[in-house]
Amino acid sequence: MEKIKYKLAGLGMVIVLVAVVAIALTMFVGGFTKTAEVLVEAPRSGLVLDPDAKVKVRGVEIGRVAEVTQQADGARLKLAVDPEMLKLVPANAGVDIRSTTVFGAKYVNFVVPEEPSSNSLKPGATVVAEKVTVEFNTLFQHLSDVLAKVEPEKLNATLSALGTALQGRGETLGELLVNLDVYLREMNPTLPTLQQDFAATADVSNIYADTVGDLLRTVDNAVTTGETLVDEQQGLDDVLANVVGLADTTGSVLRENENNLGTALDLLRPTTALLEEYVPGLNCMINAIGRLMPVADAMFGGMQPGVTMNTNFMFGAEPYKYPEDLPKVNATGGPRCEGLEDRVPGSHANYVVTDTSEGAPYVPSMKIEFNGPKVFQLLFAGLPGVSAP
């Protein structure tokens, strides 16, 4: 019985030790710690990113990598993050996979943007990794792949030729690199403008591409025009000679009459200003006459050959007298279109009362003149300095 008790005591102690070790290991790996799951999709996980890798934000460890799954289009990481620490990660945070040293193990780092969101990252969210640090062994692998495709003798010949070309030109090459650095520093601030110019150039090129047919036809027409000018060069020379002669003659005429032309233009200013003011009225009158042209055409022979007229002899009338019948130029009010374009049959336009009289309204003479004045007298009689013949 004593041996059985000792065996049972030893077995119990072993069980207790195993339980203590199991509990310690479970606590070490966080088995009793409540975690929130976050998924990360990355183009690749890297060569030194394993489960239990650290997860950090702003340099503070907030969890670990629970699982790494390789997929056809990249890698999928399952993160186990402390729920309380997850509140420190903004909802718009990014992710990148970094390494502590060149050859060190990688960890997952949450990148906080310049303008972080007021909401925190929720459990179960999926974040896309922006970049993964490239390892030296990856670079060596790419370099070995390149060297495997390069023939050694050709590489040796290329390096020898390059060495010969650069021999004794170190100072010149250094100056070239310094100047290139200066040029690049000057060009760097204008890169956004250069990008906009490239985009605008693409739009312009598209327009040219759409109009290339018309441009080619224009070139063909220009060629035809050029051939015509070559064939008719003698006639063109004659035309140019005549134009030169006309210019000489016109120049002499203008030089001799420049004062008179200037005076005439000055005298025309009031008249042209008045015409400009009354342009709306003239426009109304011309439009109204245009509508009456069919009626005038019918009245004056448009409906039959010849011109229909009603003529008669009339007694002569007494001509205007100066200065009794001289009108007063003092009417104002501007142009009026009332009743010209929109006249209603049987209606009359309103009479405009203006100050155009020297003292009394004009009353035409009702006397019959048997020996009326001649045309010359009708035109010029009564004017100062003009007398009837």
Results as ranks from 00 to 15, higher is better:
residue 273 A to R: 10
residue 225 T to K: 08
residue 253 V to Q: 10
residue 170 G to Q: 10
residue 132 V to T: 02
residue 371 N to P: 02
residue 295 V to Y: 11
residue 49 L to D: 00
residue 173 L to A: 09
residue 30 G to I: 02
residue 346 G to W: 00
residue 284 C to G: 04
residue 221 N to V: 05
residue 228 T to K: 14
residue 214 D to R: 13
residue 320 Y to A: 15
residue 309 M to A: 12
residue 54 K to M: 11
residue 113 P to D: 00
residue 132 V to R: 00
residue 104 G to L: 06
residue 361 P to R: 04
residue 237 D to S: 09
residue 22 A to F: 14
residue 278 Y to V: 03
residue 372 G to I: 06
residue 3 K to G: 06
residue 337 C to P: 09
residue 27 M to F: 10
residue 70 Q to T: 15
residue 50 D to R: 15
residue 29 V to N: 08
residue 343 R to I: 10
residue 368 I to N: 08
residue 346 G to R: 02
residue 383 L to K: 12
residue 198 F to T: 12
residue 260 N to C: 07
residue 85 M to Q: 11
residue 303 M to F: 07
residue 122 K to R: 14
residue 355 D to L: 03
residue 176 L to T: 05
residue 104 G to Y: 06
residue 131 K to Y: 07
residue 51 P to T: 06
residue 347 S to W: 04
residue 236 L to E: 03
residue 224 T to M: 08
residue 142 H to G: 07
residue 336 R to A: 11
residue 207 I to N: 10
residue 364 P to K: 13
residue 242 N to Y: 12
residue 135 E to C: 03
residue 145 D to H: 08
residue 137 N to T: 11
residue 165 A to I: 05
residue 13 M to S: 12
residue 82 D to R: 01
residue 26 T to P: 01
residue 275 L to Y: 12
residue 209 A to H: 05
residue 324 E to S: 14
residue 52 D to G: 09
residue 147 L to A: 09
residue 6 Y to Q: 13
residue 160 S to T: 14
residue 335 P to W: 00
residue 327 P to N: 03
residue 240 L to D: 09
residue 41 E to R: 11
residue 207 I to P: 00
residue 206 N to V: 07
residue 284 C to P: 03
residue 240 L to C: 06
residue 80 A to R: 04
residue 188 N to A: 15
residue 70 Q to Y: 13
residue 2 E to D: 10
residue 281 G to W: 07
residue 59 G to A: 04
residue 236 L to H: 03
residue 321 K to D: 10
residue 239 V to L: 15
residue 21 V to M: 11
residue 187 M to T: 08
residue 139 L to G: 00
residue 167 Q to G: 07
residue 116 P to M: 01
residue 378 L to A: 04
residue 332 T to A: 09
residue 249 T to Y: 09
residue 344 V to L: 08
residue 255 R to E: 15
residue 178 V to P: 00
residue 20 V to N: 00
residue 360 A to C: 03
residue 51 P to L: 05
residue 71 Q to K: 15
residue 305 P to R: 06
residue 57 V to D: 00
residue 21 V to A: 15
residue 307 V to E: 02
residue 374 K to D: 14
residue 324 E to G: 11
residue 211 T to E: 14
residue 381 A to L: 08
residue 294 P to M: 06
residue 24 A to K: 07
residue 157 A to T: 01
residue 247 A to F: 08
residue 331 A to H: 00
residue 75 A to W: 08
residue 10 G to R: 11
residue 21 V to W: 12
